[in-house]
Nucleic acid binder design. Structure first.
Length: 372
DNA sequence: ATTGCTGAAGGG
């Protein structure tokens, strides 16, 4: 198995990207995009050029219009979304948006819980296979490593019956979704089961809002995985969204690992075709069962196990609703009043627009938040 | 890089 690692560990997060001057920079960059969009959207009528306007006022006008016409996908410069983006959106859409606008603003307490969860997941993965670091420099390299992983994991699943961290991707409602399935295995009945481990700080089962989010997550994985093995995720669709360059030469370390895996691939295009063939011709079934397992971080006590019923119609309509935001077809929403308790642990409670409108903020006050 | 670009998930 291989994982990727940027050759240069230049970290944007470590250099104060979470202060306010950063968001100003982002707005400025958006202005450039907005110009183009506004130009291409303006009607080519005869009187489209208004005389007497100087450059400054024109560009300001375009900037304002641009903010309206740019979809969140464009504003955030995203070519695809992560499965967990839609899941955060399921928890609170507005919180997810603030998270995109102000990245790296988690409190240390939350970060610590996430770190613990991540290490437990890593330990479980290492029980199953080793990890090798593959230096990469381009996004083509990154996808190539992902493909190499898929190509080695499919036979392993079919022969040994269990794999972890299986990459999935596929177009859903016009947007490319990318994610990683925690675990896939065959049960004693010969059914293909997806198992998602959730580690918890406190030794109690989550409330229903959290469970709903987790149900949605595993349902999305099945949605995408099934499409992949059924040949519905084509190389063409992937290229269309990611703008991958098939003729760009792969990095030496990637080529080396491909050879070590017994593959004589020359290009990314070769690799994609192999992945497509392996996915569709390996007799992989659709996922039969979706299982969630909750364990206590500190003691590893099993808190509970849930089998999730896959409701395709429901998953699809949720995705449609979430994607409508990303496409710019509607504004982001905060939580319903009944779920305003979520705001108590939200890092953006002080700046949230939604709370001003719903009136929940006047009747009660969450515990004081530390100002950064 | 003024015209670029992405490990996903991690828990509540």
């Amino acid at each position: 198995m291989a994982e990727t690692e940027e050759e240069e560990m230049a970290s944007a997060e470590a250099s104060g990207f979470s202060d306010l001057s950063d968001s100003e920079l982002v707005e400025f960059l958006d202005l450039e995009d907005a110009k183009e969009s506004a130009v291409s959207l303006s009607k080519p009528g005869p009187s489209s050029e208004l005389p007497g306007k100087d450059d400054k006022s024109v560009s300001l006008q375009n900037w304002k219009r641009g903010l309206d016409v740019l979809s969140p996908m464009e504003r955030f410069h995203l070519k695809y979304l992560y499965v967990t983006d839609l899941c955060s959106q399921n928890w609170c859409e507005l919180q997810m948006v603030y998270g995109k606008e102000l990245p790296g603003s988690l409190t240390p307490e939350k970060a610590a819980v996430l770190d613990t969860g991540a290490s437990i997941h890593l330990a479980k993965e290492l029980e199953l296979h080793d990890l090798v670091t593959v230096p990469i420099t381009t996004k083509e390299d990154a996808w190539a490593v992902k493909f190499l992983n898929i190509l080695s994991m499919i036979p392993t699943l079919q022969s040994e019956g269990r794999i972890r961290e299986f990459p999935v991707f596929g177009e859903v409602e016009g947007i490319l979704l990318v994610g990683v399935i925690d675990e896939l295995h065959y049960t004693s009945k010969g059914e293909l089961e997806l198992a998602e481990l959730k580690t918890r700080r406190r030794p109690v089962l989550p409330m229903s809002a959290q469970k709903k989010k987790d149900y949605f997550q595993v349902s999305l994985y099945k949605y995408i995985f099934d499409a992949m093995v059924q040949g519905k995720v084509t190389p063409a669709s992937l290229i269309h969204h990611t703008k991958l360059c098939l003729d760009k030469p792969l990095g030496p370390s990637v080529l080396r690992h491909a050879r070590q895996g017994g593959l004589s691939v020359k290009s990314l295009g070769d690799l994609m075709e192999l992945v497509f063939l392996s996915l569709t011709l390996s007799d992989l079934p659709a996922i039969d069962t979706l299982k969630l397992e909750y364990i206590h971080q500190e003691t590893a006590t099993i808190l509970g196990t849930e089998i999730v019923a896959f409701e395709e119609k429901e998953v699809k309509s949720k995705v449609q609703h979430y994607v409508a935001y990303w496409m710019g077809h509607r504004d982001p929403q905060g939580v319903d009043v009944e779920e305003a308790w979520k705001c108590r642990t939200c890092d953006y409670v002080d700046i949230c627009e939604w709370r001003r409108g719903t009136g929940v903020s006047s009747s009660w006050e969450p515990k004081a938040k530390k100002l950064k």
